[in-house]
Nucleic acid binder design. Sequence first.
DNA 1: TTCCCCCCGTTGCAAATGCAACATCACCCT
DNA 2: AGGGTGATGTTGCATTTGCAACGGGGGGAA
Lengths: 212, 212
Amino acid sequence: MENIKLFNKLKDYEIDELLGFLHATTKVFSKGSVVINKGSKLNDICVVLVGELSISTKNINGSENVIKKVSAGSSFCTNYVCAGVKSSPVVVRAEKQTGILFLPYDRMLILHESVSQWQKLLLKNLFAEVAQENLEISARMNVLNQKTIREKILFYLNSIADEVGKNTIEIPFSREEMAGYLCVDRSALSRELSNMHKDGLIDYKKNEFQLF
Amino acid sequence: MENIKLFNKLKDYEIDELLGFLHATTKVFSKGSVVINKGSKLNDICVVLVGELSISTKNINGSENVIKKVSAGSSFCTNYVCAGVKSSPVVVRAEKQTGILFLPYDRMLILHESVSQWQKLLLKNLFAEVAQENLEISARMNVLNQKTIREKILFYLNSIADEVGKNTIEIPFSREEMAGYLCVDRSALSRELSNMHKDGLIDYKKNEFQLF
DNA sequence: TTCCCCCCGTTGCAAATGCAACATCACCCT
DNA sequence: AGGGTGATGTTGCATTTGCAACGGGGGGAA
């Protein structure tokens, strides 16, 4: 229970209290089983306690396409629940044996002064988690919005440099993962990095980059 | 005040009450003036009452890059405020003369049973607005994630067809806007649409499309 | 050490795409 | 009708990029 974003700064006894108040339930899903099917009703904020999930879109012809993985501590499908989407547009599947906590959204919004100690924090944490996901997606969108590979790379590296306030940075990706994030071919990425080095724009070694 | 997403389903007297309770303030910005500068403090949920804003990133060399426009009824910078980002990473500028409502975020989370009628709705609306923006961005990300123009087009059209449950659809874009959304060249988009028609995949006229 | 494997860089080539310039078309105004 | 204007389609061309194949280097295991 320690690393659950939604319960950040909440004391154990407060968590106990809110689980009861919200009529929370838990369930364990075995590896490969479907947690939420496309079209099924969405009423709860769902949290991964242990394990890992994949979220997939499902085409008309039935083929699935993984768009995201969710690990322990994070909630999922929160966007749909909060946005008022009643039936799931995605399939959620357990990648390993996975324990999940279900918190009815309706009850989260029943306000009582007497329980506001934890409720204020819970709501604040939920806002933070949804908003942070928004920032992550936006950041990647801005990268993908760039036309050329070089622009994508520079935009990405600069945004990180901005964040940490230095021009020597370390990225959390291998080349292959970096190519996936930038949505370009791995070899094309290597080629362009090489060109940018020749042009005196960057220096790099493994996942450490320096901007000039 | 009618079309403000944040005040959806709230009665006028409830809005009056909450404006007072939250210590809301308003301010008018003239065309071209800076509403929020990069680096300035973010404490309030901001809502456009009338007018239009642009949100821009600012490079180290000072050049600005518009990433979004915000029109009346929508809130902005909500992501940063809710995510706990204290200082603005973007510049917000008035495109026309624009009136803005500022709602201190801290006070939104002060829970009182006595005022919960409007507070519950307000919080629910805020969740909905942030989450809906997530869904919009995610949808576009999935499109941009496709490799070829043809895949981008099909993914986009299919996602809309999925939504409305028909294979004849109408999109909210002109060609130029569509090209912008798909992040491709306008003429390249026209060419590919033409090719797809030849290949018997789609039929189209203006912004109406039919999928086969 | 030697072998093996994985990650990364390099390169030739073909296909996709951006770019620019021009052609058409639809629509509005007079 | 005529002309003007803005949106869309078309096309040639140069560039970018994906793809596939190969090579080198580092690290782990026997």
